[in-house]
Design a protein around this nucleic acid. Structure first.
Length: 198
DNA sequence: GTTAAGATCTGCT
DNA sequence: GCAGATCTTAACG
């Protein structure tokens, strides 16, 4: 298994959001390795997207969003939680993909410890704040290059060609709610919301 | 300096 | 299904 080719994280956020599904997110700390498969993402565009942090220009918080594709954009929200994004656009563009949920694969015990031993394994990582807790991701990793340790993307060379991807409205935003920029692996048991019938 | 809102989660009903 | 916790950020004065 190799590191994810950098070009997969480069391009229009909608396309990258779709492409990242099924690949792996890995996190190494001195406590060990944690690994999960990406099952849910959201695209945040730079233009005509009021929900995107970059839509009102560069600030100290969002400046990595305007940086190089393949870097991590991490921000703190609601007084308690971090959200993890992959920057996708060329320098100056301001687009990114929010990783909302992964399926836990390795380091389950470490995730349980960090998450306070939830009853169900899917509660380890089925939400942007939860997966950051399980993966020990915080602002110190903002701007980190995702093709090297200790936080990196790895290729899944055996993604099922028949994997069904669905696009739905994004979650938790109050503007631009009609755009279908949330992408999920249909049928996954590790999504942040139960798949609705559409 | 002050204030209001936020790409969420948890626990309770 | 819904309200409360919690505090950083950015917009405004």
């Amino acid at each position: 298994m190799r590191y994810l080719r950098k070009k997969i994280t480069t391009g229009k956020a909608e396309n990258v959001a779709r492409s990242l599904l099924g690949h792996y997110l890995c996190r190494k700390t001195e406590d060990g390795l944690v690994k999960g498969m990406i099952v849910e993402t959201e695209a945040y565009l730079s233009k005509n997207d009021q929900a995107c942090h970059a839509s009102r220009g560069k600030t100290r918080r969002n400046e990595t969003m305007f940086g190089e594709a393949g870097k991590a954009y991490i921000y703190f929200i609601y007084g308690n939680y971090y959200c993890f994004n992959v920057v996708t656009g060329p320098i100056g563009q301001g687009e990114a993909v929010l990783v909302r949920a992964v399926e836990p694969l390795e380091g389950l015990d470490l995730m349980r410890e960090r998450r306070g031993y939830p009853e169900l394994d899917r509660d380890l990582t089925n939400g942007p704040g939860k997966l950051c807790q399980a993966f020990a991701i915080d602002r110190t990793l903002d701007g980190h290059e995702l093709w090297q340790e200790p936080l990196y993307l790895k290729e899944n060379s055996s993604i099922n060609e028949k994997t069904e991807v669905k696009a739905t409205p994004r979650i938790g935003i109050s503007v631009a709610t009609s755009k279908k920029l949330r992408y999920i692996i249909s049928g996954s048991n590790y999504l942040s919301r139960r798949e609705s019938l559409e």
